[in-house]
Design a protein around this nucleic acid. Structure first.
Length: 594
RNA sequence: GGGGACGUAGUUCAGUUCUGGUUAGAACGCCGGCCUGUCACGCCGGAGGUCGCGGGUUCGAGUCCCGUCGUCCCCGCCA
C-alpha cells in the first residue's frame, strides 16, 4: 500500500462545519473513514474528525482517478480529500446530520494512513466490553460520546478558572513530591535516589501547602490539581483524581460558601444553561442524619424520615415498645403510591435493612379498608390515624417502619429511601439539587485504634461554642466544616481552619499524636502558624465527580481520558510494572516479594 | 482483606447448570466478487476458535471439580 504525504495540502474546514452556504467552494478535509458505502461506480465515505461527519462522494464520472483509489478505503483509514461542496440530490438530504444538506464531491484523494483491523468498531452500535475499550483507549476516545465528556471537562475547567480569576484567586502549583503524613488515606510513596531510604509521598491534597500560602499572604489561592490516595477503587473513586482546591484568608464559613455557590451558578449557567438558585440550602449534619439518614442527602424527592415513636408508644407490638423503652426510636417513611409493592419487593428491601444493623422493617399498605400490615392488630385505630397524619399518608401509600437505636434506624431508612426512589423512578433527569451539610462532628472515636480521629482533617477548626467540650467530651465537638452535596453525592468538603498554634497543638494531642511525631511530621506547619497566620478557610471540590454528574456519566472512568482499572492499573500502558534490578539498587531498594 | 457477577471467532453473544458425547453456532466486523444516490446501503461467496490459563475427574470436558489470572460491582478502606 502506498501512503501519500500530506504535501502542501492544508485543511480548509473540519468535518462538522460545512453547510448549504458553502456550496460551490473548493475545500480540503482530513480525517478518519467512519464508514464507506461502495455502490460500484459511486462510493460514499463518511469522513470523521472530532467536530463531526461529512459525506464525501467519489464519482467515476466526476473524477476517475480518485474514484479508483477510493475503492480500497477501509474504516478508520486516515485520508485527505480535495473537492467541491455540492448540494445533495433532492430528497437525498440527511436531516440526522448537521452537514446533511451537502456533500463533498472528491476531485483528489490522499491516503495518509491505513489501519490494522480495529479491536472494536469505532462507529459500532454493538459495544465492546470495558476492558477492550480501556486497552485501546485512543480508539474509544475517537467515539463522540467519550470525546464529548472530555470536551465538557475542558470547558468546565475553563469556566472555573476564569470565574476564580475574576474573584481574585491566584492559581499556584504545589509540590507533588512531598511529605507523608500519618492521618488520612494510604500514601503513594516515591523513593528518593539522592536520599536513600527516604520517601516522598504524592499529595492526598495540597492541604498544608495552601495553608502556607495563606500564611504567605496570597489571600486567595486555587488550583485544579491531581491528588493521590492509595485506597481501593469504586465506581466513583480513582487513585489519582482531580480537585478544584481553594483557600481564602480573612473569611468565615460564609466567605467560602459564597465563592463556591457563585462558581457553581456560573458553571451550570454557562455549560448547561441551567439556572441554579442561591443561596444553597444548608442543613446541619445532625439534622441531615435525622431527616435523610445520610450525610449526603438527596433532596430531589421527599420521603423524609419521621420519628413516630410517640404515636406508637402505646402499641402492643413488642419490637416497638421494647426498643422505645431502651432509648431507641421508631422511624418511618411514607412511600407515596407505594402500596403496590409486592411481598417479594418488601422482602428485598427488608434484607437491605439488616445490613445496616436493624432487625428488619415493618410496613403498612394503606388500603381503602384500612391498614394491610403485619402491625394491623397491634396498633390501635387512633394510633394508626396519628401515624398517618404525621406522615401525611393517604390511601394507596406505603409506610415503612424501622425500630432501632436512632443512628441505626436513620442509616437503614436512609438507604431504603434512595433504593425506593430508584425503583419508583422519582428522580427526573436534568434535576440538580445542591445542599450544604454543615457542622460535622470534629472527631470520631476509632474503636480499632482506640483513639480519636479527625472526621475531616486535623486542621479543621472546632465550633467556637464547642471548644470547652474538647477536654471532656471530644466526640460532642462540632466542626466548622461543610460538605457540598449535589444530587446525593458529595462533591466537595472544606472547613475553616485552625490558625493558632495552641489550638492546633491541642487537637494533635487529642488525636493521640506524640510530641515527637508531631514535630517530625507537622513541625514545619506548626512553625508557620507561629509567624502570623491569618484566619483562613477553604474547600476542595471533586472535579471528576462534578464533571460526571454534569455530563450524566455513570462512572468516573467516563470523564477521565486514561483512567485506572479497579485493580489500580492502567490498561493502556500496563502500569504498574516491575522495574530493573539496576533501577532498584540505584534507589537502595530490594524486594521482599519477587 | 472479604463477598458476588463475568471470561467461547477481531467484537457482542448463544451453547455451559439440573443432564459431559460426532464437525462449537449467530450477528456485526474482516477477505473476494457484483452494484450510479447510499447514509447501520444491498446481493452472492469465503476465511476466521489455545472455549482466559494450569491441573484434576472421566473412555471422552467449552460443559463437572480445584487452583490461578483478568474485567466489573459491593463491603472493609477512602482525614
Amino acid at each position: 500500500m502506498d501512503i501519500d504525504t500530506i504535501g502542501d495540502w492544508e485543511r480548509t474546514n473540519d468535518c462538522g462545519s460545512l453547510r448549504r452556504d458553502d456550496i460551490g467552494r473548493e475545500v480540503v478535509l482530513m480525517g478518519w473513514v467512519n464508514r464507506r458505502r461502495d455502490l460500484g461506480k459511486l462510493i460514499f465515505v463518511d469522513l470523521r474528525d472530532r467536530f463531526g461527519l461529512t459525506q464525501i462522494v467519489f464519482d467515476e464520472e466526476f473524477d476517475e482517478v480518485s474514484h479508483e483509489r477510493a475503492g480500497i478505503l477501509r474504516n478508520e483509514w486516515v485520508i485527505a480529500v480535495k473537492g467541491e461542496v455540492a448540494p445533495r440530490l433532492l430528497g437525498q438530504e440527511n436531516p440526522e446530520m448537521p452537514t446533511g444538506d451537502i456533500e463533498v464531491k472528491a476531485k483528489e484523494l490522499k491516503i495518509l494512513n491505513e489501519t490494522e483491523i480495529p479491536p472494536f468498531q469505532v462507529d459500532g452500535k454493538i459495544d465492546a466490553s470495558e476492558n477492550v475499550r480501556l486497552r485501546y483507549r485512543y480508539l474509544e476516545l475517537r467515539r463522540p460520546a467519550l470525546f464529548h465528556n472530555l470536551f465538557m471537562r475542558h470547558r468546565i475547567a475553563l469556566v472555573i478558572r476564569s470565574f476564580l480569576n475574576s474573584e481574585g484567586f491566584l492559581e499556584v502549583e504545589t509540590p507533588f513530591l512531598t511529605k507523608s503524613t500519618p492521618e488520612g488515606a494510604r500514601d503513594y510513596l516515591v523513593p528518593s535516589r539522592i536520599n536513600k531510604g527516604s520517601f516522598y509521598a504524592l499529595p492526598q491534597s495540597p492541604q498544608l501547602f495552601k495553608q502556607l500560602l495563606m500564611v504567605a499572604g496570597f489571600n486567595r489561592y486555587f488550583q485544579i490539581v491531581k491528588c493521590f490516595r492509595d485506597e481501593d477503587l469504586r465506581v466513583d473513586r480513582q487513585p489519582e483524581f482531580t480537585q478544584v482546591d481553594l483557600e481564602l484568608s480573612f473569611v468565615n464559613e460564609d466567605g467560602v460558601m459564597d465563592v463556591v455557590e457563585g462558581m457553581m451558578v456560573d458553571v451550570f449557567s454557562k455549560i448547561l444553561d441551567h439556572p441554579v438558585s442561591r443561596p444553597f440550602p444548608r442543613i446541619e449534619y445532625e439534622k441531615a442524619m435525622d431527616l435523610y439518614g445520610s450525610d449526603r442527602p438527596d433532596a430531589r424527592f421527599g420521603m423524609e424520615l419521621t420519628d413516630v415513636s410517640d404515636q406508637l408508644r402505646s402499641s402492643t407490638f413488642r419490637a416497638f415498645t421494647e426498643v422505645i423503652e431502651k432509648g431507641g426510636v421508631v422511624k418511618a417513611i411514607n412511600v407515596k403510591k407505594g402500596a403496590s409493592f409486592s411481598r417479594k419487593e418488601l422482602d428485598e428491601l427488608s434484607s437491605m435493612v439488616t445490613d445496616s444493623g436493624a432487625k428488619g422493617l415493618l410496613w403498612a399498605k394503606l388500603r381503602p379498608d384500612g391498614w394491610q400490615s403485619p402491625l394491623a392488630k397491634s396498633v390501635a385505630p387512633n394510633s394508626r390515624g396519628a401515624v398517618e397524619e404525621r406522615l401525611g399518608a393517604k390511601e394507596g401509600d406505603l409506610i415503612i417502619f424501622v425500630s432501632a437505636m436512632d443512628h441505626i434506624a436513620n442509616e437503614a431508612l436512609g438507604l431504603l429511601r434512595i433504593e425506593i426512589s430508584k425503583r419508583l423512578d422519582l428522580i427526573k433527569d436534568g434535576d440538580y439539587s445542591f445542599v450544604w451539610v454543615t457542622r460535622f462532628p470534629l472527631l470520631d472515636y476509632d474503636e480499632n485504634e482506640k483513639r480519636y480521629a479527625a472526621v475531616h482533617h486535623p486542621f479543621t477548626a472546632p465550633l467556637e461554642e464547642d471548644i470547652p467540650l474538647l477536654g471532656e467530651r471530644p466526640e460532642a465537638v462540632r466542626a466548622r466544616s461543610y460538605d457540598l452535596v449535589l444530587n446525593g453525592e458529595e462533591i466537595g468538603g472544606g472547613s475553616v481552619r485552625i490558625h493558632t498554634i495552641d489550638l492546633q497543638n491541642q487537637i494533635f494531642r487529642i488525636l493521640g499524636l506524640g510530641k515527637e511525631e508531631v514535630r517530625e511530621k507537622f513541625g514545619f506547619f506548626l512553625e508557620a502558624l507561629r509567624y502570623g497566620a491569618p484566619p483562613h478557610g477553604g474547600i476542595a471540590l471533586g472535579f471528576d465527580r462534578l464533571v460526571a454528574i454534569m455530563v450524566g456519566a455513570k462512572s468516573l472512568r467516563d470523564v477521565i481520558a486514561f483512567p485506572k482499572t479497579q485493580r489500580a492499573s492502567c490498561a493502556v500502558t500496563d502500569a504498574p510494572s516491575p522495574v530493573d534490578r539496576d533501577q532498584l539498587s540505584e534507589l537502595g531498594l530490594s524486594l521482599i516479594y519477587p
